[in-house]
Nucleic acid binder design. Structure first.
Lengths: 239, 239
DNA sequence: TCGAACCCTGACCTAGGGGCAGGGTCAAGC
DNA sequence: GCTTGACCCTGCCCCTAGGTCAGGGTTCGA
């Protein structure tokens, strides 16, 4: 006959857990000795090890209760299912590990692969980190609000980046962020930008032209996403 | 700007979880629109994905809070540790899977490998399942009450089982369980048993002779572990 | 303009225990 | 015989990471 502590040590379980299993009706309360201590038999030990094993496998206690006196076939089927479940959980943990690595470096976790590739292209082109961040945040918002539109737009945008003229314009626009609003290069840049958009109207008919759309969305979320020079540019182009 | 539902879909998290993160101070409460709805920015989305990833990795929310604005080195160290932790958990799940298989068939989960081997030997020898069960339960109790003694005793017992005479005695004793208490073979069996113990005194000096010890322990836990014939045998040997 | 889908707060519930209070019991050593 | 440390008892509240329900208000598309 075992005391609760001996039983707990045997099964690798805390005393509290055993009492918990009693409360939940998983393990029958054993008899008491003269001083009121619980006294366990080998049968209890066997049952407790089964409970522990199933509990470690993540089976809810309520289900374990049902399983303990199920017939062999039912039990076997349940074990197979539980085993499959663990396999799935292991796979999920593996995926989580991969994501954990991504967490430290890169934006792949936050945007679609296409957008991530696009951001990498920008980085390679020499675009400033500030601009890339604004782009990223813009794409996050777009993808969240309307994934299909974002998917169309990013495809078009990546095609656009294959055009050297557009790339140059993009880089100049990026650089202009830090310019003085009186910089003499601003009017010329405004002209080139306007010409570009005149020559290359957007293809998505019910969507806005991309750059302004992104800028507007991003500006909402990113305080300080504009600058004096950019404000001046906007003035030059609309005015 | 995103609603809470959009944000939840983006991050693959429930609305309730997001509100929970607000309560725990993991994610700052965003501003509200005119009707009191929360409106989220891309920054929130990025932070939420980080939270989700860490939470899926099993990191407690309190720790995630500390990690979110830790410096790069601290964060990297934490991620490495968390990753290691997941690896460990995967290994543990693998072990649990093995045990799960054992759960269906065999006693290896309940007794030491030595005892399990011993039980297998008995089975091979042709010992009844009833006797094997009584033995198993006895060993569980012995191992739990005193693992060192049990370890010594099982070693001795297994040596004993190498002796054909002892095996024969064991089998006869097992068979006698079902005999009538008037069976004429009982006195002879009692004699042989007594002779055996006279010729082979137990080697552990401060321990009782094994068979009776096991029988007594097992009899306590297993109601009906004895039989009329066995009771008669005990009488014949002690009287 | 109406119904579906969305959002709000607040309160309560869950599993699987942990920890503490306040008390009784047992075994060993002196 | 007495003490000391290790056990055991019940009962209570606490925790995490949310889920669920009630009882509202809001927005959007047909």
């Amino acid at each position: 006959m075992l005391t609760i502590g001996q039983l707990a040590d045997y099964a690798g379980v805390t005393i509290k857990a055993i009492r918990h299993y009693h409360e939940r009706g998983l393990l029958t309360e054993p008899g008491r000795d003269s001083s009121g201590y619980r006294r366990y038999t080998a049968e209890h030990a066997v049952k407790l090890v089964k409970i522990r094993t199933l509990a470690h496998a993540g089976v809810p206690l309520a289900r374990i209760r049902g399983l303990l006196d199920a017939d062999t076939a039912t039990f076997a089927a349940a074990v197979a299912e539980i085993d499959h479940d663990i396999e799935e959980r292991i796979a999920q943990l593996g995926r989580t590990r991969d994501q954990l690595v991504q967490l430290r470096g890169g934006d792949r976790l936050f945007v679609s692969p296409e957008v991530a590739d696009y951001l990498d292209d920008l980085r390679e082109l020499g675009v400033s980190e500030r601009a890339i961040r604004v782009e990223r945040d813009g794409w996050i918002l777009m993808q969240t609000a309307s994934p299909e539109d974002a998917s169309l737009w990013i495809a078009e945008k990546r095609e656009l980046m294959a055009n050297p003229e557009f790339c140059a314009l993009y880089l100049d626009y990026d650089a202009a962020y830090d310019w003085s609003p009186d910089d003499p290069r601003l009017p010329d840049l405004a002209d080139r930008t306007r010409n570009w958009f005149t020559d290359h109207p957007g293809r998505s008919e019910n969507g806005p032209v991309h750059n302004p759309a992104i800028a507007r969305l991003a500006a909402q979320s990113q305080p300080g996403a504009s600058s004096p020079a950019w404000d001046r540019l906007a003035q030059l182009m609309t005015g």
